[in-house]
């Protein structure tokens, strides 16, 4: 078990390095222009967001619509550190992630007693309250936007942030802690009566999820270099949740693919800019109905076969 595990780990890491090398080569040689490089950076940030939300919504099974709120906490905290405290980029990122985790913890403790739609709506409310706070406290410069953030984010850092996020969440899911988290999704009462401290694990998963959302926020802040509260409204949370749901709840690979596809696809739709959101809405409704009604049994079958072979995705 240990040997097999280590071999798989080395293989995956080598694969990540190869992908990284290929992209770096393509960017440096101009095969991928700077416009698409930027989109790749955003795609990697979205991978961090979707995989981390998958921990809370997919594995833990708690519907939340507040991920953008945690992202904004991370974004503002890290940006303010860089601007006012002059901390190095990595330290700022870490502080941002910790700040988001702290807010996640504080929100998680009272709210995670709620379930389903109620949890969803209360996290949305917290999301909006965080946004209103960012809009009204002086240090964030409100609606005018926080400016002067150093442009430190590059492809290397976002790529490895995404790899680390996937690795950490995958490792957690594969441990006794991860099984405890998944069992809560399956049946909270039965989990409790199997001796799992469910409240602890709910808050833990929620906090870790917020931590990585904060990391994504920090990366975003140091890439865009100006922060406006409106970016982090509940529509952003919906966007992330859609990635997780379309990728498959409790399916890390799916989250990664969905995050990348949903970042790149809209770029191809730029030609229809007026109809873009309309198309997005139609695709969203159609995709949900197709997915839930199992209208693609063949595709799905192929998919699940692959899953068994790789044994990588925990469901």
């Amino acid at each position: 078990m240990k040997k097999k595990d280590i071999r798989q780990f080395i293989l995956s890491f080598a694969l990540a390095l190869v992908i990284y090398g290929a992209f770096m080569f393509a960017m440096n040689s101009g095969i991928i222009n700077s416009y698409w490089s930027g989109i790749l950076i955003v795609a990697c940030i979205n991978v961090v967001l979707s995989t981390s939300l998958n921990l809370a919504s997919g594995y833990l099974g708690q519907l939340t619509l507040g991920h953008a709120g945690f992202m904004s906490v991370g974004a503002y905290a890290s940006a303010l550190c860089s601007i006012y405290l002059g901390t190095s980029f990595i330290v700022s990122l870490f502080i941002g992630a910790l700040a988001a985790a702290l807010v996640g913890l504080l929100i998680g403790i009272p709210t995670l007693r709620l379930k389903g739609d109620y949890l969803c709506i209360i996290t949305l409310a917290f999301n909006e309250i965080i946004r209103i706070i960012m809009l009204n406290i002086g240090i964030t410069n409100g609606a005018k936007g926080l400016m002067g953030i150093p442009m430190s984010t590059n492809f290397t850092i976002v790529f490895f942030s995404a790899v680390i996020t996937i690795y950490v969440i995958y490792s957690i899911v594969k441990s006794r802690h991860g099984r405890a988290i998944i069992s809560i999704r399956e049946d909270e009462t039965a989990s409790e009566l199997a001796g799992i401290p469910t409240s602890y694990y709910k808050i833990l998963a929620f906090t870790i999820s917020a931590f990585f959302a904060g990391l994504a926020g920090g990366l975003y802040a140091h890439y865009i270099t100006i922060l406006i509260p409106k970016v982090f409204d509940y529509n952003k949370s919906v966007e992330i949740l859609v990635m997780v749901v379309l990728g498959g709840l409790g399916n890390l690979k799916g989250s990664v693919i969905a995050a990348i596809v949903l970042t790149i696809l809209p770029e191809y739709l730029r030609a229809f800019s007026d109809y873009r959101m309309l198309l997005y809405a139609i695709v969203l409704i159609a995709a949900m109905i197709i997915k839930e009604k199992n209208l693609m049994p063949h595709i799905k079958e192929k998919f699940s076969k692959k899953k068994d072979e790789n044994k990588e995705v925990a469901e």
Partner: peptide
């Protein structure tokens, strides 16, 4: 019956064994 339906048979038992080990997160 209240099993963890989407988990494998062995993982169901492993959830019960949660406290038999104490390695950290």
């Amino acid at each position: 019956i209240r099993l963890f339906k989407n988990m494998s048979v062995i993982d169901n038992v492993k959830v019960g064994l949660h406290h038999s080990q104490n390695y950290s997160l």
